[in-house]
């Protein structure tokens, strides 16, 4: 029963994801200079301009909140940046020009060490199923429920 619910939940997410992907691939590249990897959605959590200037502060703030207090909201979490901006099973790794973060950071010559520890691509679906416990899944679902 529970597994069925999980499956439904996942396939729904996957459908949404692929729809967003299709939308974003139609959108033109942001910059003539840069070939920034595309996001799965055409709208980031804030305006593009805001994100370009202030993404580091948002991530840093969220970093300490999550690390020290256990606040795990998704809006400004690095994990969600990666989930949205990097393809699952992407061949582009942090440091490569075609990785979302690295493409801009290498252009701007700003060194980041996020990916010395953090995953630079979303977890493959197979990995996800190993991890999730039943309680956790229900929390995830309820979050989706709230946002809709």
């Amino acid at each position: 029963m529970l597994q069925l619910k999980q499956l439904m939940h996942k396939s729904l997410l996957a459908m949404l994801g692929s729809a967003a992907l299709a939308a974003s691939s139609v959108a033109v590249a942001d910059s003539a200079l840069l070939d920034i990897a595309k996001a799965k959605s055409d709208q980031c959590v804030e305006d593009t301009a805001e994100m370009r200037t202030n993404h580091m502060e948002k991530i840093l703030h969220q970093r300490d909140k999550t690390m020290r207090e256990g606040i795990r909201t998704k809006q400004y979490s690095l994990k969600e940046c990666i989930n949205c901006h990097v393809e699952e099973n992407s061949q582009a790794r942090a440091g490569d020009k075609d990785h979302f973060c690295s493409s801009c950071h290498s252009y701007a010559a700003v060194t980041i060490d996020c990916f010395q520890c953090h995953a630079d691509r979303p977890a493959p679906a197979s990995r996800n199923s190993v991890k999730t416990s039943s309680l956790q899944e229900s929390t995830d679902t309820s979050e989706t429920g709230v946002s809709q």
């Binding site: 994990k79 010395q116 520890c117 953090h118 995953a119 979303p122 990995r127 991890k131």
Partner: peptide, 16 residues
């Protein structure tokens, strides 16, 4: 040593 492919919910890295 360098940690290859850390889990996205358990970041780990060399030198710490």
């Amino acid at each position: 040593e360098t940690v290859e492919d850390p889990k996205e919910y358990a970041p780990r890295g060399k030198g710490t």
